[in-house]
Design a protein around this nucleic acid. Structure first.
Length: 569
RNA sequence: UACCCCGUGGUGUAAUCGGUAGCACAGCAGUUUUUGGUACUGUUGGUUCCUGGUUCAAGUCCAGGCGGGGUAACCA
């Protein structure tokens, strides 16, 4: 028997080909690099989302594939928005995805080196201290169509610049009073090269360096240099940094230090999901969701609490590949990988999401007059013999799902209706003889008779029964809060909506909480367990809100439902 | 509008030195099935954005258009 996990895991092995790996192979073949070194460099100012999952997977997987290493680096150059809380969360999320970094590093580890290098640039006449304020600098930079103009402070002497820069570091100036700028070209067509800022004064406490520094390096100045220090060979980042590459190169060349290769790829977009930190923050702050780990959030912790397995997420990220085209992936692809992984390993259980009762009128009674209970051992996973069995009780009073009965069923409805017969999953064939409705006309009870000879897939007279429905014994049912999710947004491209529109495309029904009637074995469910509720979907036992004997389930994804799909047409 | 990047079936992504479009998901049909699930099989979709050019041969090279995205923070 082949390994079942290997036969249907689309995200796995075959050597991937894309422009980045092609480049790495070429660099290796040409002897340009000996060993691959990559890094994942988040700023610890928020939680990681599905877009980061792609970047993480890329950098770590590439390193692994080519026998190299990948560092996790906190780009902590702006203490204003950063916090230890995020550092911890990021590490936890990366580990949860299943990656282990070679070194855990911080851009702030390099503040000393960065300062020394800045002095070198000043000595080479390639950097100067600016006295203008932000507004004046912006004006001097020009626009995309007009060249900038040189700052009146651009030609200060090396000695003066050095002195001023050291005094900046010494804390002689207030926030915004001075910045150190690279001296490049104020008329350059790439705005990033119009004398970009390297250091700004920020009299702020840094979560790691404390009060040691009052000047902090800008992204462009810190990033490439950090890469260089770590011996990064291929610095992978998203497309919006393309315009920064010339500056990245300029700094490395001006310093004459190891020069990593920055390569940009398209960021991940998925239908109905947002990956803008700003908008995700808005969702949290305006309480449209319960927090960063709300199962509807595209954050890694949201996805995790939704029940999406890390392996499925990584397989998805590997599968979507890497290119320079900005596109949007269909949600169904993520769902496919989620189901694919869950299908082969989760235990099956029965649970009724929207219960109506089914009464078997000819169900036997015990000698003492009490209702008969029949226990049946059934498989935990029909595809996995090793998964074992559990016992489920069959009685004459059951819960079944409202969807499984129709008063006036259409032609191809294989479930229950007047005079129709179906099989109870793992149990007997039952035939509907009558049904009750409440004052609103809603079905409350379906009455059936059962065929005692119909156990084990047979029927007394050999007749074929097409439909099978799931059920739960009323007497033994465990009632559990169950959260059913739909996308947060009604539009597939929520990113194109802003302002008030943004709130108007939120779906009011993105989360429905129902009381599901579960088979009794589910009372043993522990936080983190995943199940397939037969014919319904995959459900994840929420570690945060579940209690011993009282699980709370999150619907990760529904099962494929061809019937429902056909009806929708 | 200046500059940069990109443009292959519904979606995403492949195609060594240019050699005649592959894969996955979705869709459709069928087989198996005590999950309308899974598995398996088959199948519909592409004049590779357009127009010209180079060539025996172009998705691949060149030119011009058209379309999409990005960029003007003392953020990253």
């Amino acid at each position: 028997m082949p390994d079942p996990a290997a036969t249907n895991s689309p995200g796995s092995p075959e050597a991937q080909t894309d422009f980045i790996r092609d480049r790495i192979r070429a660099d290796l073949a040409a002897g340009k690099v000996r060993q691959i070194q990559t890094r994942f460099p988040p700023e610890p100012n928020g939680y990681l989302h599905i877009g980061h999952a792609k970047a993480i997977t890329l950098s770590f997987a590439v390193a692994e594939e080519f026998g190299g290493k990948c560092n996790l680096r906190m780009d902590d150059t702006n203490p204003e928005k950063e916090a230890q809380e995020y550092v911890d969360a990021i590490q936890e999320d990366v580990r949860w995805l299943g990656f282990e970094w070679d070194q855990m590093v911080y851009a702030s580890d390099y503040f000393g080196q960065l300062f020394a290098w800045a002095e070198q640039l000043i000595e080479k006449g390639l950097a100067y201290v600016e006295d203008q304020n932000a507004e004046q600098m912006a004006k001097g930079r020009g626009t995309v169509r007009t060249p900038g103009t040189n700052s009146p402070f651009r030609d200060r002497s090396v000695a003066e610049n050095l002195d001023l820069f050291r005094r900046m570091k010494a804390g002689e100036f207030g926030d915004g009073e001075k910045v150190l700028r690279a001296k490049i070209d104020m008329a350059h067509s790439n705005l990033n090269l119009r004398d970009p800022a390297m250091y700004r004064v920020r009299n702020l406490h840094h979560q790691r360096t404390g009060d040691e520094w009052c000047i902090y390096p800008m992204y462009d100045w810190a990033h490439g240099q950090s890469d260089s220090i770590e011996g990064v060979t291929h610095s992978l980042c998203t497309l919006e940094f393309e315009h920064h590459r010339p500056l990245y190169d300029w700094f490395c060349e001006s310093l004459g230090i190891h020069h990593p290769q920055q390569i940009e790829f398209a960021r991940l977009n998925v239908e109905y999901m947002l990956t803008s930190k700003r908008k995700l923050l808005r969702l949290v702050e305006e309480k449209h969701v319960d927090g960063w780990d709300d199962p509807r959030m595209p954050t890694i912790r949201g996805l995790r609490r939704r029940g999406v397995p890390a392996e499925a997420l990584v397989a998805f990220c590997k599968h979507v590949g890497v290119a320079k085209v900005n596109g949007t992936h269909e949600l169904s692809l993520l769902e496919y990988f989620t189901r694919d992984w869950l299908n082969s390993r989760t235990w099956r259980r029965m649970a009724v999401i929207d219960p109506i009762q089914l009464i078997i009128e000819n169900w036997p009674k015990n000698d003492d007059g009490t209702p008969h209970v029949e226990w049946k051992d059934v498989k935990n996973n029909p595809q996995d013999e090793d998964a074992g069995t559990r016992a489920v009780p069959i009685t004459g009073k059951l819960w079944i799902d409202r969807d499984d009965f129709m008063e006036e069923p259409p032609k191809k409805f294989f479930r229950l209706g007047p005079d129709r017969e179906v099989r109870l999953r793992f149990g007997y064939a039952v035939k509907c003889v009558s049904y009750d409705k409440d004052d609103d006309g809603r079905i409350t009870t379906v009455r059936c008779t059962y065929d005692p000879e119909s156990k084990n897939g047979k029927t007394s007279d050999g007749r074929k029964i097409k439909g099978v429905i799931h059920w739960v014994s009323q007497e033994h049912a465990l009632e559990a809060d169950t959260h059913l999710f739909e996308p947060l947004f009604a539009e597939a491209d929520p990113a194109s909506f802003d302002g008030d529109e943004f709130a108007s495309i939120l779906r009011p029904d993105s989360r429905r909480i129902v009381k599901a009637m579960c088979e009794p074995s589910l009372k043993d469910a522990k936080g983190g367990d995943a199940f397939q509720f037969e014919r319904v979907g995959y459900f994840y036992c929420d570690p945060k809100t579940s209690e011993q004997g009282s699980p709370v389930f999150h619907r990760t994804v529904t099962l494929k439902d061809t019937w429902k799909k056909q009806q929708g047409k």
